[in-house]
Design a protein around this nucleic acid. Sequence first.
DNA 1: CGATGACTTGACTGCTGTCAACGTGCGTGG
DNA 2: CCACGCACGTTGACAGCAGTCAAGTCATCG
Lengths: 254, 254
Amino acid sequence: MAPGSRSTLISVPGGGCETCALARLCVPPGLDAEALGRLERLIERPRPLGRGTVLVRSGQRFDALLAVHSGAVKAYIPAAAGGGREQVIDFRFPGDLIGLEAVSLGRHPYWVQALETTTVCRIPFEPLERLSEELPALRRQLLRLMSRTLAREEREILGMSKRGARQRLAAFLLDLARRFRERGYSSRSFRLAMSRSDIAAHLGLDTATVSRLFTAFRHEGLLAVERKDVRLQGLRRLADLAGHVPSRPAPRVS
Amino acid sequence: MAPGSRSTLISVPGGGCETCALARLCVPPGLDAEALGRLERLIERPRPLGRGTVLVRSGQRFDALLAVHSGAVKAYIPAAAGGGREQVIDFRFPGDLIGLEAVSLGRHPYWVQALETTTVCRIPFEPLERLSEELPALRRQLLRLMSRTLAREEREILGMSKRGARQRLAAFLLDLARRFRERGYSSRSFRLAMSRSDIAAHLGLDTATVSRLFTAFRHEGLLAVERKDVRLQGLRRLADLAGHVPSRPAPRVS
DNA sequence: CGATGACTTGACTGCTGTCAACGTGCGTGG
DNA sequence: CCACGCACGTTGACAGCAGTCAAGTCATCG
């Protein structure tokens, strides 16, 4: 099952976090039942949000972390503001947190919008911080989550610094694959939650270029793609593309 | 005074962190003298490192945070490994921490090298974490520092997603300016610690292109540049370039 | 079933990478 | 102190790749 599939992973019963498929990502290990209960009482149960819903606005006061429970969102700066066109900072999937970068500022720096039907848990930050005073495991998990996010963002920067549209898209697809694998899904076959233009806005490319590249990759046997469904086939070659030679031996014709 | 430290901001006397010009960045506010003393006893005093010194290797076990005290470093992946050419993740200046992204992994993901004579303080992480158990102010500062770093990295991604070499370089220069301002230095006039090829490797451009752009910007009155010294003159126009219109009608200067 | 938006594809222009030569400052060693 | 070598930086020529404009197809939703 693809993580991007429309229906939610879990329909969010009355139950708590221990029933959540993402517990291993969200819930600190080593919490006893009593502590877990206190954490859960903090967390506001998720509600389903329709595609296009704006979860967070730039400048909005930060008072709670959001945990993506199902679906997918994008963090972005709208076209009107930061420049002539929309810029997508990144995408978040189930198990990812939203708002970590706002802790120090007290305000959200970007907008966050649902790319499809999405459910998020809301975790008020003040209470969370107070609770973490008493629970070392929770404290440690928070730190590790931030570090993990930091590491991912840096890999992202790495991917963006690549020259050439081919390399960038390849690196992007492999990053998606990695993230899906981390979540227990197939890293070979998945569904793109975001549109071509979202990908373009993220990679600093043009929609037309992204579209052309998908076609090219398909013809080269690197992947199979139909609509939003992607299956990576030439993982090895994709990795080469993303990691190695700028543009291939360069067929010089003199 | 350390007999070898050439041009540090402060020559690191026997004194502790309270004399450090970067205290406001490194030292948690609200620590009393006794707590501060305990923190300081953790921190290994900085030694001057020559240009080119490798501080951290990829894969190296993480056991301490490094705080840049003077100088500048780059985090990168060497040409041999990750691909055909070196990729620079980012640059760190006085007051920045190195290693936050390694907390969750337990190993450093990248290499770190001094761009010029640099001094760093070494803060063993285990003891720091233990100490933070007892000092809420320290704990909070750590969290805020990570959040701040996260926010910066995301701005970085934003800058990298920009199309066109002009926009990218402009965004990069403005980011530098911002960081210098945050540290109390002039945001108009500063010295580039990194080489043109470092900048190119960071922005995903070519050295030649970066060089050409500096020349072009100079001719357009956007900045004055000689060697490593840069003075931004057209802040407004630079910001427009970085934030707005993709390429603009191009004011050709013959 | 029509409208709307997303995606694909084509033609053309221009930016930017590549290759290459040259100038220049700095460190090294005489 | 000077000469040399070398890495860095600048500039030019050229070609390939990607952005722009634009037309056309196709799904999805009302």
